[in-house]
Nucleic acid binder design. Structure first.
Lengths: 349, 349
DNA sequence: TTGTACGCGTTATCAT
DNA sequence: ATGATAACGCGTACAA
């Protein structure tokens, strides 16, 4: 038979009880060395390995972690997929999580959630051992989640109500500061800030804070006309903003964005309208995606190691799953200015 | 208690047996309408929903499907992650699978596999209901897999020994043909073909076949010096090939590649060495990734709908999981030439 | 070390 | 035709 051997098969083969086999498997030191060896041999011979489903049912532990992607209400049902499709950021992050999880015999599940009920069900249905929240979620969801009793790691959250969870983040304010400062040092005085809706994104707000700080320090005034908000981070939205800038004839030479994606879209639109980057506009991205050094011009950007962010998040989660009662941690990863071709010293008039 | 209600709780609440509840849940028509309503009410009131782990254990069905990524032996252990990280292709594909799976209450697991044993174990451990193979795998793995007794969908395979599985593919030969033909029509006569190792990649071989066909039809000779093979599809390898072309002073004006990634890398290297695309080299990519219309120059490429490929693969898999004995199917998705800025009519001398 | 109840839903068997 | 009982899937962990 190609049938998978069970723990009872092994037990029979080794002339012991299933319990003993289980003890050997789990390193419970209740077993004499000689029986242990017999059991190990039997396991080897039969090619036995435990069924995770059964383990999961009896231990109430699935060796499964979940990554939660945000779905706003106005998105179509199938938005998980489209979020993934368009956002290279998620891709790298998930890879990092995957890698660490796999090393520890965990598998990773992905979902988008519209409401907390759905989320709770998902966790319960699959007996998930831990959760990573990637993105912004409403307060109510966290209240629900904290009742779930499983470790949770948040990414890039600043809201007060998230303070009781683990968090992996970067110094977003510094990122915004570095980006603006870079342009200022290049002589730019009229600098735009391009982000998602600041009311909805504390991350972008932090970056904006850093941005403003740099301008203030340089004695430059923060001009609200040079703040551009878009709903979602896509290439297309980047193009739209660039066109808006051109249409409205904004006076500016420098642009700080919260995402390489937006920056790339903007550059494309500028080029389409015969504007040159960096000659006409200097643009700083954010993230340093793998594509960003291969665009033309290559992107000056604030680099964060998204892959490592995923790794750290998974490590944190694993530690918490391993033993509860670990204290809540905040891990801050570094950001760094990477200067490439999309920014340039301004040509004074 | 916040404890999840079990089927027995529901049964008690409705004054029936657990079995009856199960029947109602599974639509077994053994239950009178009045009891059914009672049960439904109890379910509603208690907020009951079944535990997938338990269902999985008793039904031997997990509502989980797996996507298998290839790991060659010489890759590091953690290569799943890096494959994902670098390959935007996978990203879009997986999104498509995810979406369809989710609609049917399935979750999707991802893994890279080095050998068939590991793969088999993974399937067994998690009781996976179906498998999608994304990429090229050795023959031996398929022999093992066919014994597993779960539906399998292959992507882009042409090997003889894969003929007994479902397959989702595109017309790769046509793709190669269209790409070459486009360049020929633009007046190019010395056209390179850039691919992975043709001995290892039947897909690239098909495209090469189409490529050669177009050249032959046009009375052009296929020059082996203009065939460039690389090990892996990365931006960096694209750059390398471009540099090789420049270093060796190859006489060519047109380039057909098997991937947008390679094309983007090549363009970058050309630009770095003061060569202009498309003025000096016309380049055709393959895939039409979401980034490809935002590079500079934007890519002329052979478009395939990778997202849809994922959707189709998942649909096929779901159908097969639903009822076995469905006949093996091959689904061929269309390819299409998308002309953008990276190709141009040759300036005759 | 072992026997065995348990976790939770399913389904074959049996009863009305 | 309805519905209950109980064994089962597989590993775990407590009592003995």
């Amino acid at each position: 038979m190609t049938n998978k051997p069970t723990i009872r098969d092994v037990a029979k083969h080794a002339n012991v009880s299933p319990a003993t086999v289980s003890y050997v498997l789990n390193g419970v030191k209740k077993v004499s060395d000689k029986t242990k060896i017999r059991v190990l041999e039997a396991i080897e011979q039969l090619g036995y390995y435990p069924d995770f489903t059964a383990v999961s049912l009896s231990k109430r532990k699935s060796n499964l972690i979940g990554i939660m992607l945000p779905l706003t209400d106005d998105m179509p049902d199938n938005a998980t997929a489209s979020v993934l499709k368009n956002n290279l950021y998620y891709n790298e992050f998930i890879s990092g999580v995957e890698m660490v999880a796999r090393e520890q015999q965990f598998d990773t599940l992905l979902t988008g959630v519209a409401d907390q009920e759905e989320c709770r069900k998902w966790v319960k249905k699959r007996n998930l051992d831990g959760l990573i929240f990637l993105g912004i979620f409403p307060k109510s969801i966290f209240e629900q989640m904290s009742k779930l009793g499983i470790p949770i790691v948040l990414i890039d959250t600043y809201e007060e109500y998230t303070k009781l969870f683990n968090n992996v983040q970067i110094d977003d304010e510094l990122g915004g500061y570095l980006a603006a400062n870079h342009l200022i040092k290049l002589g730019h005085k009229n600098i735009a800030f391009v982000s998602t809706n600041l009311n909805l994104s504390p991350v972008d707000t932090k970056r904006f804070t850093g941005f403003k700080k740099a301008l203030n320090e340089a004695g430059l005034e923060v001009n609200n006309h040079l703040l551009f908000e878009t709903r979602e981070i896509t290439f297309e939205n980047g193009m739209e903003i660039a066109e808006k800038i051109l249409n409205e004839n904004k006076e500016l030479t420098g642009i700080v964005t919260v995402s390489d994606i937006l920056a790339i879209g903007m550059i494309k639109a500028f080029q389409y309208h015969q504007k040159h980057v960096p000659n006409d506009f200097s643009i700083v991205g954010f993230d340093d995606l793998s594509i960003s050094q291969f665009t033309t011009p290559s992107l000056t950007t604030i680099k964060q190691d998204i892959f490592k962010k995923g790794e750290k998040a998974a490590e944190l989660l694993m530690n918490n799953i391993g033993d509860q009662g670990v204290e809540r941690q905040i891990i801050e990863l570094p950001v760094q200015l990477v200067v490439r071709e999309s920014t340039k010293k301004i040509v004074s008039n």
